Simulated assay, not measured.
Amino acid sequence: MTAAPRCSDLAVDDARAGTAPPGDRWFLVEHPGPWGRVAFAQSGFGPAAVTAMDAWAREVGGRVLLIRRAGRATGGLRRWFRVDSRPGHEEVRTGTWTDDDGLVDALRAPGTVHTGPLFLTCAHGRHDTCCAVRGRPLAAALAAARPAEAWECSHVGGCRFAPSLVALPHGFAFGGMSPQEGVGIAAAYVDGTVDAEFLRGRSVHPPAVQAAQHHARLFTGVRGVDALALRSVTALSSGTWRVVLGDPDVVVEVRERRVEAGRPLTCSATAPGWMREFDLISVAASG
């Protein structure tokens, strides 16, 4: 009996550009598990901690994720990381926690500066099967290559692009790569570059800007993590955007479309979903 295809099997031709999950800041909580389907609310934390995390995320445009080392290794104090992904403010601070009160305090605590990147691979199988099946091999490969920097994480978004990889502090999201390609993406990020092939976008930008930066990277060939900084974004008409980028100076116009997928977009969904896609209208150097 043939198993039904998973959501990531059916999404191999889906456009990645413009699909990075939104987030200006990230709060990462080390918790080996088990993780509930709704990770933070259903993983053993008290109501006060859940409420505080939700309020923080709403206030700062942030995301709260559970993290663990590949293989669910545990022991010792658990870490937290508070990440600022905003351009020009990229920073990671860290500390340890032992109880809910300490975790709530960590939302505002200065912590200590964490140097170096963090690589998060969604391996949240209770949320979507693809994240476990495709995420865990990538997480294991990254853990072998970069043990101090690699973590499994709870649901990121865009399960159909599994495995999903986030490079912090910049908040670049990637999807659909092999474990070996993921290790290469991490190495490139450490060297200060990104590759457009598997890039979904940067979490701090709205989808139209993510898509515009994708086309600008293809047009210019630039790969720097800080290249093509957003200067302005203007709605020209319903669904059409003009995005001005700098370093180097490029102007991109894209048109947003809602595409009916004709299929569920996650393994747990029961009804067909829709996708946001962007068509390139024009791209040109400016200045």
Score class of each variant (00 low, 15 high):
residue 1 M to K: 14
residue 3 A to K: 13
residue 4 A to Y: 12
residue 7 C to Q: 10
residue 9 D to V: 12
residue 10 L to F: 08
residue 12 V to A: 13
residue 14 D to E: 15
residue 15 A to V: 11
residue 16 R to A: 14
residue 18 G to T: 14
residue 19 T to P: 06
residue 20 A to D: 14
residue 20 A to P: 14
residue 22 P to R: 14
residue 24 D to H: 15
residue 25 R to S: 12
residue 29 V to R: 03
residue 31 H to E: 06
residue 32 P to I: 07
residue 34 P to K: 09
residue 41 A to D: 03
residue 41 A to T: 07
residue 42 Q to R: 08
residue 44 G to K: 01
residue 50 V to P: 09
residue 51 T to P: 04
residue 53 M to H: 03
residue 56 W to T: 11
residue 58 R to M: 07
residue 58 R to L: 05
residue 62 G to K: 04
residue 66 L to F: 00
residue 67 I to E: 01
residue 69 R to P: 09
residue 70 A to L: 08
residue 76 G to L: 01
residue 77 L to K: 00
residue 80 W to R: 02
residue 81 F to Y: 11
residue 83 V to W: 07
residue 85 S to H: 02
residue 86 R to D: 00
residue 86 R to M: 08
residue 87 P to S: 10
residue 91 E to I: 13
residue 92 V to C: 12
residue 94 T to S: 13
residue 97 W to G: 01
residue 101 D to Y: 07
residue 102 G to E: 13
residue 105 D to K: 12
residue 105 D to A: 15
residue 106 A to P: 12
residue 107 L to S: 12
residue 115 T to Y: 09
residue 116 G to L: 11
residue 116 G to D: 11
residue 119 F to P: 00
residue 123 A to L: 11
residue 125 G to Y: 06
residue 125 G to Q: 11
residue 129 T to H: 04
residue 130 C to S: 10
residue 132 A to F: 06
residue 133 V to T: 14
residue 134 R to K: 13
residue 139 A to P: 08
residue 144 A to W: 00
residue 153 C to W: 03
residue 155 H to N: 01
residue 158 G to A: 00
residue 165 L to T: 06
residue 165 L to S: 00
residue 167 A to P: 07
residue 171 G to R: 05
residue 178 S to K: 08
residue 180 Q to L: 03
residue 180 Q to H: 08
residue 180 Q to K: 09
residue 181 E to P: 05
residue 181 E to D: 15
residue 182 G to R: 04
residue 184 G to K: 07
residue 186 A to W: 06
residue 187 A to R: 12
residue 187 A to N: 12
residue 188 A to G: 14
residue 195 D to R: 14
residue 196 A to H: 12
residue 199 L to T: 06
residue 199 L to A: 04
residue 203 S to C: 15
residue 211 A to M: 00
residue 213 Q to Y: 05
residue 213 Q to M: 14
residue 214 H to S: 13
residue 215 H to K: 08
residue 217 R to G: 07
residue 217 R to F: 03
residue 221 G to K: 10
residue 224 G to K: 01
residue 226 D to F: 05
residue 227 A to V: 02
residue 229 A to L: 06
residue 230 L to D: 10
residue 233 V to L: 10
residue 234 T to W: 03
residue 234 T to R: 13
residue 234 T to K: 10
residue 237 S to P: 05
residue 240 T to V: 07
residue 242 R to Y: 00
residue 242 R to M: 03
residue 245 L to F: 04
residue 250 V to Q: 02
residue 250 V to N: 09
residue 251 V to D: 11
residue 253 E to V: 12
residue 253 E to D: 05
residue 257 R to W: 07
residue 260 E to S: 12
residue 262 G to N: 06
residue 268 S to Y: 07
residue 270 T to A: 15
residue 271 A to T: 14
residue 272 P to L: 03
residue 273 G to P: 04
residue 275 M to R: 15
residue 275 M to N: 08
residue 276 R to A: 03
residue 276 R to N: 06
residue 279 D to L: 10
residue 282 S to D: 15
